[in-house]
Computed example of a mutant assay.
Amino acid sequence: MSIFPQNFEQALITSNGLGSSELPLAKEYGWDFTNNTFLLIDGKSVLVTGRDAVKIWAWKALQTPKGVYKAYSLNFGNELESLMNQSLSNAAMSSEVERYLKEALLVNPYITGISNITLSIDGSKTSVDFTAETIYGEVTMSV
């Protein structure tokens, strides 16, 4: 049993040329970003589709270190944490963050590109704002 909704696994198969070239509608369980938990209505999980589903998938991928949890495939997650405590120039850090973002997110066939990456470094705190280009339109995200 997979943690991904059934159509995401099917999308991976079809995007690898093993099936139809048309992606099914993206679906994910709703996420309450404010409280960092599943979105519930009347105590029941909510299924979201399209751009919202892709945003949730991307957010989860950016919250999950790659290769740490056996519940996820080796392609899921990110390696941004490996940049911590490295003495890179701002330009080098920006370049590496962009590369790691793309490696983490472009495995999803619903995400077609990453743009408008803005890296903010304030002492030991680093934040990244960017736009994920999806087949459903653009999604602005912050990490």
Rank of each mutant, 00 (worst) to 15 (best):
M1R: 04
F8R: 15
A11L: 09
I13W: 14
T14I: 11
E22C: 02
L23R: 14
L23S: 08
K27N: 10
E28C: 02
E28Q: 12
Y29M: 10
G30M: 09
D32E: 10
F33H: 05
T34P: 01
N35R: 13
N36F: 06
T37C: 05
T37I: 06
F38T: 06
L39H: 09
L47F: 08
G50H: 04
V54W: 01
T64Q: 13
P65K: 11
G67N: 15
A71G: 14
S73K: 13
L74D: 02
F76A: 12
L80H: 13
E81T: 13
S82T: 12
M84S: 05
M84Y: 09
S87H: 10
S87D: 09
S87L: 08
S89K: 10
N90S: 09
N90L: 11
A91P: 03
A92Q: 14
M93P: 00
M93V: 03
M93F: 06
E98A: 04
R99W: 03
R99N: 08
K102S: 08
K102T: 14
V107K: 02
V107D: 04
N108C: 15
N108Y: 04
Y110D: 00
G113V: 03
G113F: 03
L119M: 01
D122P: 01
G123Q: 03
K125W: 04
S127V: 02
S127G: 01
I135W: 06
I135A: 02
E138P: 03
M141E: 06
V143D: 06
